[in-house]
Design a protein around this nucleic acid. Sequence first.
DNA 1: ATCGGTGCAAACTCTTTGCAGATTG
DNA 2: CAATCTGCAAAGAGTTTGCACCGAT
Lengths: 155, 155
Amino acid sequence: MNFPDTLRKTRSRLKVWEILSDAPTPLTARQIAQKAGTPDTKGVWLSSVYRALDAFEKEHAVSKTMLKDSPEALYAISAPGHHHYAICMNCKSRTELAGCPFGEESSLHTVDNDFMVVGHVVEVFGYCKACRTKMNIKTPASEEAGEHSHHRDKK
Amino acid sequence: MNFPDTLRKTRSRLKVWEILSDAPTPLTARQIAQKAGTPDTKGVWLSSVYRALDAFEKEHAVSKTMLKDSPEALYAISAPGHHHYAICMNCKSRTELAGCPFGEESSLHTVDNDFMVVGHVVEVFGYCKACRTKMNIKTPASEEAGEHSHHRDKK
DNA sequence: ATCGGTGCAAACTCTTTGCAGATTG
DNA sequence: CAATCTGCAAAGAGTTTGCACCGAT
């Protein structure tokens, strides 16, 4: 995906674009602003990052994602061929899912021949192997047999 | 789903629970507080609504959902047998999806025999029939043939 | 030169937290 | 009665907006 040619190529936007291009995973606006530098090192202000991201999003050049457990939106350059992730609830690592449950190429299709689908979000939450070992989290089987009184988290 | 018996049945919580039970669709905390009444009519304060919802969520009695396009979280009583929705990007109506792309009963399974899944989010975005007709939105086919320069929205 | 973008500050919205008094079990 | 919950106020986090200057086309 290239920098949308409908948009002016300003220093701020180019920087945001570059940071997003180099990032292996989606980033928050704040992370982008931090990577861009400080006020003295000619960085990019947070509000400008938001404005740049909004502009990119309107051109469908970047995608914005809201995760269930975080109030911060994540931004990534729209990939040709969409991806979904499994997100570890402990270490927050993201592992790309092998394929899309709706089918690889059909990001556009209809539900009930009635609703025109233009996109979808699929997120899988759980625990990665490393964290399960580290925290001795029980297996799905024992969890399923279950009760609901523990694993509450302090914030 | 019933009011979790691990929690004290206070006026506020019962009211929140009742409102959520009667609601045909997920609600925001603010909507719940509004339906609960005003400060003079013995309503429930917004912060108390949040605290009640947090408590319910920890008991897995209600589920919290963050939609991609809204900063407000939606809450609903956890249904036995989970549901997913198709959300109209125009009128914001929600239509329940017929089933889960991951399979009806397997809300717990593993990805790559490595990642322990405890939940997932599936959201489908698009346009409902009514809005498509009303707005004369083109079909997937013509959309797919596409360019990216229009349907930008003013905020 | 013009129109749009940016720095910056300040406003806004959603959510969380602290505390003292009220309630529940 | 003790522990928990609630009303309320005020603080926090994330995001948006207003405005004057600046820079891309």
